[in-house]
Each structure stands twice: as structure tokens, then as C-alpha cells.
Design a binder for these strands. Structure first.
Lengths: 338, 338
DNA sequence: TTGAAAGCGTTACCAG
DNA sequence: CTGGTAACGCTTTCAA
């Protein structure tokens, strides 16, 4: 019944012109104080709110960005969303969050819809299926700035990601130095840069310490709980099973952990485990897992900053790297009492 | 450089009128096929996209809803967001997601901003601080439909929530029937209906089985990891410590679990534990926790449905309840081998 | 200091 | 079948 009141409405009530109301409301000079007061009072009384769509139409800017993540119900991505959103809010941007379900077709559709919404920019965390980037090309044609975060790719796009190679290397060195010799790597598919980088870090560390590389200990498959579970069970069933596992994703960490426990093996005495996962996952398990602590808040912040720069016309393609560092807990320390 | 192309642009290129272009694009009758084809071709070529802000202005509808959650990085809420969003997308709505940080002031601000964005409706999960509802009254004045979900309240607003009383009762009965006699309740503050309901269910079960109620075993405080941790440690330090714990929130479940483990107590031999938590949290722990499995997807779906009805002018205030049911795992079964 | 009018992109109505 | 115009809410330029 009581519709949103517009400037025109206020103007009519006061018997003046809209433009005067506009000026009064905006606080620009050029309207006598007495009249301004009356306008402001009436606006207040009727709960006047500027219509953002009229604004957008007028200025061609929507103060809105889009975020695409593979699975918002997964802790790591939810956290990233949280911090990107917090940062965006501080700059007066609202976020439209979409979930690709880790599927390429959905990712394409999400981007499509965000462009339709005329968001000013998009922060995208790639799905694990994404191998071609024509959809990003299309965005570039539409002049919508895009920043890749967390799961990035080698395309002509600004990115914010973790130091995957070095982090994985560090974790592997830690395992080796703790006495492990048969270290398994449980990772995502080779088409994902993130998975490949982490595997590289792992291999690098093995070479560095002259630990032989065993192909049968490297599992690169679909990132999901079930595949993590079956891959780990396969590893544990080998004639010479691994004495340590490094995982490349929180889901795989959980799956591997549960697979080990279900086999009645003890962590870390029988097998050590570490990898990329959230603080949360690491702390929930018993024993708590040594893990690569990612500064998710920092990544969120950097991602938005990058995006804002792009929105403001900066067209340098920079690649920001946020450090993940090893946080040692009990799942990799053999000489602990249990 | 290459701006978004508008109907007017296309009209100019073809030397015809905008209204004709509009009709052609909309597919309404009243434009000859030959001309329509040319318009469509040109639109396609230049990547024409309807401007949703012009639409919104025209129709006064934005096809957008707002979601407010206490903490999107927490699994339970992230899941709810995921499913509300999925459902919304199917009806052609986009979601603006905001995070109140579980604080009242932020909640107010989130609602304010969503109203400013002219969302057509808002799905709100209350912060644990929220005790007065003037902000909801204000929304009602603005004619923005609101649906409360998960954490609801006794206000004149449609709600979608779990069957908190019965679920808590069921879990408590399970503990009693498993031999527990000194059952602690670890819950949120008494100002939250959800916490109160769950406590009621707990008390009901005790009375039902004639188990004495012990005040010192009931802890109702702030919902956070740290307070859950210290409350549990206090409980464990009692002269007569509890032999089972029921928790009212996922955060508290994790905290209690870790507190117990840190004290070197065995679950379930020394103390049983169960409560409200996500599938995830239950499965991550070892032993896995018996838990109240909430059909989060169903709740998300129902929430959006309720909201959509409101948006479409239905003003009945209905209260939908989704069942949570006990899923028994190892943390409450004493006669299991470990 | 105030008013009038144009324009942002779209659709609907009324003429031709 | 097509063109012209008004309207949605707001800002800005120009004129008074």
C-alpha cells in the first residue's frame, strides 16, 4: 500500500521541482537552507531511500560484484567468500554469490547471469572441470573485469593464489625429515594448475632429499570425498604401503584421514598425514593434523583489492601470492605419546 | 571502449524506432519476420543484453532476494545458503548474501543495505544477540517480505525451522537409554528461541524417564568455540562430572569434543556426546559423533518457497518445521570395541 | 535560489 | 506493421 516514496513525490508534496529536491537531498549548494530542511524532514518522515536502479541507470555503475565458488558449503570457499564480502562491504560494494557446484557448465551459467546483472566485476574460483577459457574471453569482450582466486590458471587475468609449489615442498620436506620415505601424494586432476603446482612442490622436495619417486604413490584424480577415500584405500592396500600422505585439498584430507582410521592404522605411528586444509578440519581430527595453514582472510582481501583496481580502470595483470605456511600438529610427529 | 549496446543503438543502426526493436527482442507479435530477424541478428552480433536496472525501474521488481546469516564460514549456514540459492536460481532469482557476524548491530546494517538494494524479499537467520525486533518492524513498514529460518523467533513473521524440542528430546532419551544418568546440556543463551526449545526437549526427556535434573549440568552461554571449550572443561571438573553431553550447536559440539579429548577422557566409555551438528562435523571426529541430522537442503528449499509466496502477495504467516532425526554413530554406544 | 528539460534503457500505449 | 511518446527515479546542464 505505502509505496516507496520518490523525489518526485516529495517535490509534489512541497509544490516544488524534483531537481530542487535532488539538490537538497544530495547536499549540494544551491538551495536555501530553509527549503532544504523542509525537504530533508519530509524525506525522513516518509522513509525516502534512493533507488539504486535509477542510480545505476544514471551512472552506469551498480556497486555490485559477483563471486563464483565451486562449493560454498565447503569451509575453505565459504571462508573466502566471507572475507571478500567483508572487504567489498567496506568499499560500498554488495556481493552476489553464486555456486558452480564445481562443474564447468554451471560456471559458465553463473558468469552469464552475473554479467546479466551488470556486476562491475567478478571474482572467480575455477571449477575443477574447467580446462578451456572461452567463457573468460567472452567476459573480456563484455568489458567485465575478472579476478581469479585460489584456483587460478595461466590465462591473461589477474590472480590471487597461495604459494602452492613452495608450501607443498615445505610439507614434504617436513615429512621426509620426520623419517618418512614412502610419501604418497593425493591430489586433484592434472588439468588444474593448483594441483599440478602442489605436485611439483612435492616432487621437488623428494629430489632435493634424494628420496626415490614412486609413481604408484602419486594419485591425481577427481577432487571429491569418495575418490579420496578409494584412492587412499588403494594406497594402503599396496604391497609396500606409504608411510606418509600429503593431500592437496581439504576434502581429500578428510577422506584420507577417515580411510586410514577405518583400516585401524594409527596416526602418526603407522602413517603420517598432512596437507592443505582449513584450520577447522585440522583441529577437528584426532590426532590433530599438521597442515598448510592458508591465510584465507588475506587472500580474500587481496582478491577484492585486485578486482577493485580493475574496476577502477587499472589494466595491469598482476599475480598476487599469499603465503601458506606449515603448522605442525600431532599427525606427523612420530615420537609423541598417545 | 566497446560499451554495452542498447536497444536504442540497434534502432539507430537499422534506422528504425526503439519500440520496434523492443518488440522484436521480446518476441511479441506486431513486427514482420524479416525485420525481426535483422534485429535479432544485430543484437546477437553486438552481444546485446537487456539492462536489468532499466527493467527494475520499469517494473519495480528486481528479481533479487537477500540472505542474512550469522556466519557464512560456518558449515551449517553455508549449506543453508547453498540450498536457498539453488532454489532461488530455479525461480530466476539472484541472491545477495550478507554476513552479520552473529552481531545485532551488523544484522541491522545488513537488512538496511538489502532494503537499499531493493531486494524483493529477505531470508534472515537471526544473530545470537538479537532480542528486540524493531528492525523487523521497520522492514514490515517498508513492505519487504521477510522469512526467518533456522534461528527463528516468536514474531509475526513466517518461519522455517527444525523440530528443536522433539529432536533434543529424542537425543536425550537415546543417551538415557544408553545408560547415562548425569547428562549435561551445553547450549546457547536463553534469549534464543532455538536454544530454549532444545533445552526444553532435553528437560522433557529427563522428566519423562524420571532422571533427576541437575542445575549444575546445564550450561547456557554464548555460542562460540571458546565458551564451549571452557564450559565443557568446567563440567568435566565437577566433583561429579557428567557421563554424557548434549550440545545445541555445531560449534559447541566441536568445542566439547576437543575439551573431552584434551582431558584424556575416552568417548564413549568415559563420556558420551551427541548434539546438533552437521554431517561433516560428526563424520570428521573419531569416534564419529552420534548427531541430530538436520535436513538442511529441505530447510533451504522451504525457506525460499515461503519467501516466494510472500513476494507473490500471500500474507499468511505460516511456520514450517523440518524434521531433524537422530543418526546414531559411535560416540554414544558404550558397548563398542575400541 | 529555483525551474525546466534531457537523458540513462526499457516497455506500453496510442497513432498512423 | 511501425513510429512516437510517456513513464520508471534520479542527476545535470542551462535558463530564468
Amino acid at each position: 500500500m505505502k509505496k516507496n516514496v520518490s523525489q518526485r513525490d516529495i517535490a509534489r508534496m512541497l509544490g516544488i521541482n524534483v531537481s530542487t529536491v535532488s539538490r537538497a537531498l544530495k547536499g549540494v549548494p544551491g538551495v536555501c537552507t530553509e527549503l532544504r530542511e523542509r525537504v530533508l524532514a519530509l524525506a525522513e518522515e516518509h522513509g525516502y531511500r534512493p533507488n539504486p536502479f535509477a542510480m545505476s541507470l544514471r551512472y552506469g555503475s551498480t556497486r555490485t560484484i559477483g563471486i563464483v565458488v565451486p562449493d560454498i558449503s565447503f569451509n575453505h570457499y565459504a571462508h573466502l567468500v566471507k572475507w571478500i564480502e567483508a572487504e567489498a562491504k567496506m568499499s560500498g560494494y554488495m556481493c552476489i554469490v553464486t555456486d558452480s557446484g564445481d562443474k564447468y557448465v554451471n560456471e559458465v551459467e553463473c558468469l552469464e547471469q552475473l554479467v546479466n546483472m551488470h556486476v562491475e566485476g567478478i571474482a572467480l574460483c575455477l571449477s575443477q572441470e574447467t580446462t578451456d577459457f572461452v567463457h573468460l574471453e567472452r567476459l573480456k569482450e563484455s568489458k567485465v573485469p575478472v579476478v581469479l582466486f585460489d584456483r587460478v590458471a595461466d590465462v591473461d587475468c589477474p590472480t590471487a593464489s597461495f604459494n602452492d609449489v613452495q608450501a607443498a615442498r615445505q610439507a614434504t620436506l617436513h615429512l621426509i625429515d620426520g623419517g618418512a620415505r614412502r610419501i604418497a601424494f593425493l591430489g586433484g586432476p592434472n588439468r588444474i594448475k593448483q594441483a599440478v603446482d602442489r605436485k611439483h612442490g612435492y616432487l621437488e622436495a623428494l629430489r632435493e632429499r634424494r628420496v626415490p619417486i614412486r609413481k604408484e604413490l602419486v594419485k591425481c584424480g577427481h577432487v571429491s570425498f569418495n575418490s579420496g577415500l578409494s584412492d587412499t584405500l588403494e594406497l594402503l592396500g599396496l604391497p609396500e604401503p606409504p608411510d606418509a600422505i600429503l593431500t592437496d585439498h581439504g576434502l581429500l584430507s578428510i577422506a584420507a584421514f577417515q580411510a586410514i582410521v577405518s583400516k585401524g592404522l594409527r596416526i602418526p605411528q603407522d602413517i603420517a598425514i598432512t596437507g592443505f586444509m582449513s584450520d577447522w578440519v585440522s583441529g577437528m581430527s584426532y590426532p590433530r593434523m599438521t597442515f598448510l595453514k592458508q591465510n584465507v582472510r588475506e587472500l580474500g582481501r587481496k582478491t577484492f583489492k585486485l578486482l577493485l583496481d580493475q574496476i577502477n580502470g587499472d589494466d595491469t595483470v598482476s599475480h598476487v601470492v599469499v603465503n601458506a605456511r606449515l603448522s605442525v600438529r600431532e599427525s606427523t610427529i612420530k615420537d609423541i605419546k598417545h
